[in-house]
Amino acid sequence: MFELASFNIGGHELFVLPFGDIVNYFTPYTAALFIFALIFTIICIISKPERQLETAFGTDAIYAKEVTGKDLRFRRFMAIACGIATMGAVTSGDIFNFTLFVSMVGICIIGIVASVKYKHVLNAAFNYGIISMLATIPLFGGAAITLAATGTLSIWELSAMAPAMPGIAKALILVGVMGEGIAPFYAAKAELFRAPGAPYVIMIHVSSLLMFLRVVEIMLAV
């Protein structure tokens, strides 16, 4: 009964869970992305942060940064939420659900960064926040145009009648995902890496990367 039309992109479906025309599914590709997100989320749950070594400016002194107490709990919570949202984004069979999960990832990324009480890191979080908020406009705009043009947001249905999704909708969603997952592009700046807590910082990059990989599959499939 169920056969994924875009099997030549991510492989044949391994598992389907239909809710009306919204069919959530696993292909080898999305299953692999889900497993990556799950592994890194588990690492965030069970791992304690490292103690980043820094040299005090103008001296030979070296000190280790510590992540303790409330900071640790909040950052871990946001990292886990980020991981769960990422898992939702990679398994979703619906464009609107996908955009919602992507927005959640964007919010969680800001949360992970913003909980570090250093001026430069907070400044970086403020920048991410602005970009993420702006990115929701093309993200949901792309989904709205898709619904208006095709009458459905189901990736399953859209892939069956591909190429159905308007090019402008694809472009908008792509821009939106880039905006929400912009954090790694700030890597050239030092701010992000002044934040100790490797498992949580890595979750920022993992979620952004997996969103990109998923959106590439969606763009090719629909």
């Binding site: 692999a32 490797a198 599959e217």
Partner: peptide
């Protein structure tokens, strides 16, 4: 899937990142 292969290639970036950041 070639897409999966390249997905793995990109996850390698996260591995390098994790290996680098974990010791402090």
């Amino acid at each position: 899937s070639l897409l999966l292969l390249f997905g793995i290639y990109m996850v390698q970036k996260m591995v390098e990142h994790g290996v680098g950041l974990s010791p402090g």
